[in-house]
């Protein structure tokens, strides 16, 4: 039982550090737009995260509350809009679904793919008061 817990902590730690900085990036953007758009509290945050962005959604949620604490977005609800990976296959001349960057085309096997969506890491909108 103890062993399982240790393995879990080791596997989550390196990822959560990366998502921690991303959450800090979110807060930076929010604080800037609070000045520009004149609001004092954020109650909900909509993020758009693509499957190919390398962001671990669970780690993001885990870090989010900690980073937002005592800020303008304290206790704000986090809504993550996931976007699936899509690429343009040069050979098939059509959009195909991809699970990872640098995957081959699921139809023709070509590596000549251009990612068209799925690598987003975007703050879409805020619900503010």
């Amino acid at each position: 039982m103890i062993k399982i817990v240790v393995v879990f902590i080791l596997s989550i730690e390196p990822n959560s550090m990366h998502e921690m900085s991303l959450c800090e990036g979110v807060l930076d953007v929010i604080e800037d737009s609070a000045k520009a758009q004149n609001f004092k509290k954020v109650s909900q945050i909509f993020l758009e995260i693509g499957n190919l962005s390398g962001v671990e959604i669970e780690a993001m949620k885990f870090c989010f509350a900690a980073v937002m604490r005592d800020s303008i977005a304290d206790k704000a609800k986090l809504t993550i809009i996931k976007k699936e990976g899509l690429a343009w296959c040069m050979k098939c001349a059509k959009k195909v679904k991809v699970k990872q960057k640098f995957d081959k085309c699921p139809d023709c096997g070509s590596y000549q793919l251009q990612i068209v969506s799925g690598d987003e890491m975007k703050i879409k909108e805020l619900e503010v008061e």
Binding site: G25, L47, K122, I123, K124, L126, E127, V128, E129
Partner: peptide
């Protein structure tokens, strides 16, 4: 109210 951000993280 809703504020549009559309900004990269």
């Amino acid at each position: 109210r809703i504020v549009q951000i559309e900004t990269d993280i």
